[in-house]
Write a protein that binds this DNA or RNA. Structure first.
Length: 426
RNA sequence: GGAGGGGUGGCUGAGUGGACGAAAGCACCGGUCUUGAAAACCGGCGUGCCGCAAGGUACCGGGGGUUCGAAUCCCUCCCCCUCCGCCA
């Protein structure tokens, strides 16, 4: 959520920021109008309330003296009616303001490249070489079916398309990766491991910015005001909703969760196999930091995610997302992508974003400054990293001519000494 | 799910219609004292909104109501605790 005061003071900057995200910025005029009338009504009604408070006290005093107050009471009752009327109007304006504010995306940081869509994203770096094979590389689906690592057909039978069913070594590989990532981030990067709810209420979803915009992209349980989380970012950031944080920052939090996405409107895209699922696992990293340090923290968050794929000996590249391709809450965002020989394309496995105070303002997450004033924290999030496409990359990059898959050395201890994936009977 | 008891500031906890944004204690911050510290004493110490400011206004789990006036009374929802039931 943007700061209404900032909109009041510098509407042009806000208009420019919204336009950079290819969104309609005429909302700013409407906001200014509502804000002005709200303040006028507030001044008015607070004056009336002040009068009423004074008069009520006088009535109390008079009654103690045993005097008759019938007339005064009648006039104060009239005051009260006026107040109720204006209060009702203010409430409506507040609602209208909030409805508008809550739908405006975050303003892009000045360093975020301008652009309308993904073609405007800027490559930052590429690490490693695209693997070449002296045989025709198979896709992860072919490899997985051959080695019995997963079974999408049977998954479809129980839940419809887009749900994972990992079997045998496939399931073990995923668990090993989770364990590896959590250990790495805890031991070397200082994150605290959290186990969270995977259903959250609408207030939490609004706090991190999934609602109202992504309502159709989430699975919900309307009878209970609960949504299945689309990312671990939701519960992690919402831990401190409506709080003034009284512990030393920065806070580094991580959670391994299931994530659920309806992917409405994604039909027809690259949805085969593990590339795009309604349910997937992810290790999520969240930082809650002092505003002065959030851009340094974004760089180190990105490094934390990159360390995962480097240790796994994978070929990756980093993109700086442009204004038109960034998610709703982000002011600046890096994507990490892995090379997929089977797709002959890059696969996104992590987005590392600095949301600045956007989520903090929505969710009421504050800290106390040196001068004792209360201010909003900055929040950052990034995948560290998402599992399905990571598995795709490991399978497709590690595949051998004989149909087996060589595992990265760092995973071997997590697989109880297994160095390559092969058929159990082989 | 049933019965009962509760939700008040960072924490503990008083407050049952007016002088209560709210006692007291703890914690915290500043000061006095001290070589320093502790103790003692003095002072400060919630958040939002409106306002250049003075100040005003709102908030005692959420929402609604009664009243000139609500932390206090009524309705409703949520949450917590105890007991019973059920259950992984």
């Amino acid at each position: 959520m943007l700061d209404i005061k900032q909109i009041r003071e510098d509407p042009d900057a806000i208009r420019a920021g919204i336009a950079a995200r290819a969104e309609d910025n005429s909302v700013v005029d409407r906001l200014l109008e509502l804000d002005a009338s709200r303040r006028a009504m507030l001044t008015n009604v607070e004056e009336l309330k002040s009068k009423r408070n004074k008069a009520s006290k006088e009535i109390g005093a008079l009654k103690k003296q045993g005097k008759d107050t019938t007339d005064t009471q009648a006039s104060v009752r009239d005051l009260g009616n006026q107040i109720d009327k204006i209060d009702g109007e203010i409430k409506q304006v507040d609602q209208d303001l909030r409805e508008l504010l809550i739908r405006i995306p975050n303003l892009p940081h000045s360093s975020t490249p301008r652009g309308a869509d993904e073609s405007g994203n800027v490559p930052v770096c590429e690490h490693g070489e695209k693997k070449t094979f002296d045989f025709k590389p198979r896709t992860h689906i072919e490899i997985g079916e051959h080695l019995c690592l997963f079974d999408f057909q049977r998954a479809t039978r129980m839940a419809g398309s887009g749900f994972p069913l990992l079997t045998g070594l496939g399931a073990r590989l995923q668990r090993a990766l989770v364990q590896f990532m959590l250990d790495l981030h805890r031991e070397e990067h200082g994150y605290t491991e959290i186990s969270t709810p995977i259903l959250c209420g609408s207030k939490a979803m609004t706090g991190t910015g999934q609602l109202p915009k992504l309502d159709d992209d989430m699975y919900k349980l309307p009878g209970d005001d609960l949504y299945l989380i689309p990312t671990g970012e939701v519960p992690l950031v919402n831990i401190f909703r409506e709080e003034i944080i009284d512990r030393p920052m920065p806070l580094y939090l991580m959670a391994h969760t299931q994530c659920f996405r309806r992917e409405a409107g994604a039909a027809g895209k690259t949805t085969r196999g593990m590339l795009r699922l309604h349910q997937f696992e992810k290790v999520e990293l969240v930082k809650i930091v002092h505003p002065d340090s959030s851009y340094d923290e974004l760089e180190s968050l990105l490094k934390n995610a990159l360390t995962v794929v480097e240790r796994l000996e994978l070929n990756y590249r980093v993109l700086e997302l442009c204004t038109g391709d960034m998610s709703f809450a982000a002011a600046k965002c890096y994507d990490v992508e892995l090379w997929s020989p089977g797709q002959n394309d890059w696969l996104e496995v992590s987005s590392c974003s600095n949301c600045e105070a956007f989520q903090a303002r929505r969710a009421g997450i504050r800290y106390r400054r040196e001068d004792k004033k209360v201010d909003f924290v900055h929040t950052l999030n990034g995948s560290g990293v998402a599992l399905p496409r990571l598995i795709v990359a490991i399978l497709e990059n590690g595949q051998q001519a004989d149909g087996t898959v060589k595992l990265p050395a760092v995973l071997v201890p997590y697989m109880n000494g297994i160095e390559k994936l092969e058929l159990p009977s082989a």
